[in-house]
Design a protein around this nucleic acid. Structure first.
Lengths: 133, 133
DNA sequence: GTGACACCTGGAGTGCGCTCGAGGTCAAGA
DNA sequence: TCTTGACCTCGAGCGCACTCCAGGTGTCAC
């Protein structure tokens, strides 16, 4: 079992040191262990949780929901079903994000095609945003 | 050529009426035409631009960049190359977003599997966030 | 003409998620 | 021992992208 300094965690998770302290303050992380001198030492478990939080944040879960989720994690077996429900609901949202992103990508690429074409086509496009479907 | 009331544009684009006014104020939209009574009437071209802006916003382009982009649109043929460059760069970011989102989805689904399994597997997982790769 | 309602302006306010600053402490190398 | 740099706390501040408010006007149905 190894431990990590704030700088190392910053490095590994991409969260800034300020963000790590902020997450601890609001209860996303439980009080992190300290060295005798009072410095934080993050455990492997802390790192694992941070990776999950990174994933949830990056997929647009609001902090309030993450807070709810980590409380369910702490609830152990008793909260398993609810925890699963939260994750499944989030998974569906991620699926929707993917679908929408692909759709947006289509429009962007269509625009790239249009602007790459000779000027007249470009002028004719000015009005319609959507690629022919 | 048809025109649309603010309410209709809200409906078609998903931007709130406040956001539409805000976008006009900061110059994302050029001054929208008015009825004799002073009400806005959005054209098809306005709508087309709004659809593109919706797409850029939803793919996380900051408003400052969108501003730069619409100025390139207004620059016409002279700005075509630069406009293309902006879109191509953005397309690459969207591609990265897709890749990352898929990766995050993997972890979320892995967690769902883990929590669905009987308790012991779940306890053993507590420490590692990443699915075996 | 009278309601009701959509819309107008300018400017202030909000919520989220950090981020920074001041002032101090710990720890390792020279 | 001294210096340097990473770290500490607490609280205030910030940037973004809206969102709301007050007070007023246009338009349409009845």
């Amino acid at each position: 079992m190894s431990f990590y300094s704030p700088a190392q965690v910053t490095e590994k998770t991409g969260f800034s040191i300020d963000t790590l302290r902020y997450y601890e303050k609001i209860g996303l992380l439980e009080a992190i262990e300290r060295t005798p001198g009072g410095r934080r030492r993050y455990s492997d478990a802390d790192l694992g949780l941070l990776h999950l939080l990174r994933c949830l944040r990056d997929t647009d879960m609001p902090i309030a929901d993450m807070l709810r989720f980590v409380r369910l994690l702490r609830g152990g077996e008793a909260c398993r079903e609810e925890r699963l429900a939260v994750l499944r609901a989030h998974d569906r949202r991620v699926e929707e994000q993917l679908a929408q992103l692909r759709e947006h990508q289509r429009l962007i690429r269509h625009k790239i095609d249009v602007y790459s074409a000779p000027a007249p086509a470009c002028a004719a496009e000015e009005v319609s945003a959507a690629p022919a479907s």
